[in-house]
Amino acid sequence: MSASPEQIEAERPWLLRYARAQLQDQAAAEDAVQDALLAALEGRERFAGQASVRTWLISILRFKLVDTIRRQHREVATDLSEDTDLSDLDGLFDGQGAWQQAVRAWGVPEEGLLAKQFWQVYQQCAQAMPKRTAMVFAMREVMDMDIADICQNLSITTTNCSVMLYRARMSLRECLETRWFQQEIAR
């Protein structure tokens, strides 16, 4: 069994959405998808038919995205010093390390997270983060890579990686709370 060119092409919009979410750079996302589609067309005899075409394409696209991210990282990472300083979060906690402000339950039913709108808000929030932080977070949460893979790909330590993930989560939490959950409540 092999995937037909039409089946492969049909997944383009979806792949593009997936790629954009991690690269933020529109042109780079389109390039990565283009590369992935080409590789898929050339290798379509190798599609085993056990997974769906989409799952198979995603696995190809991931390789292309990691390549792109690596390239971008080389450009972004002029400062190679360890990022382990979390003093930017000082304002969230008091001197004893307790939350300055009560943490509310978001209390939105899972179904209430209308996927498409949530995705848009998430992307806006991700763009507000430092590039490297957003990149590491996307590799972890959108691409499901494990820490060891991320560290290896970006040549960073696990500590550095977990600091960046922590910072990303703290920042997204605040951003989502303002942009998404408050509007949910107001609705």
Binding site: W99, V103, R104, A105, W106, V108, E110, L113, A115, K116, F118, W119, Y122, E141, V142, R169, L172, R173, L176
Partner: peptide
Amino acid sequence: HFRQQMQQLRSGIRRA
């Protein structure tokens, strides 16, 4: 609540 929010963040991203 924080832990719950983190889980909602992860599942929201996955679903979307």
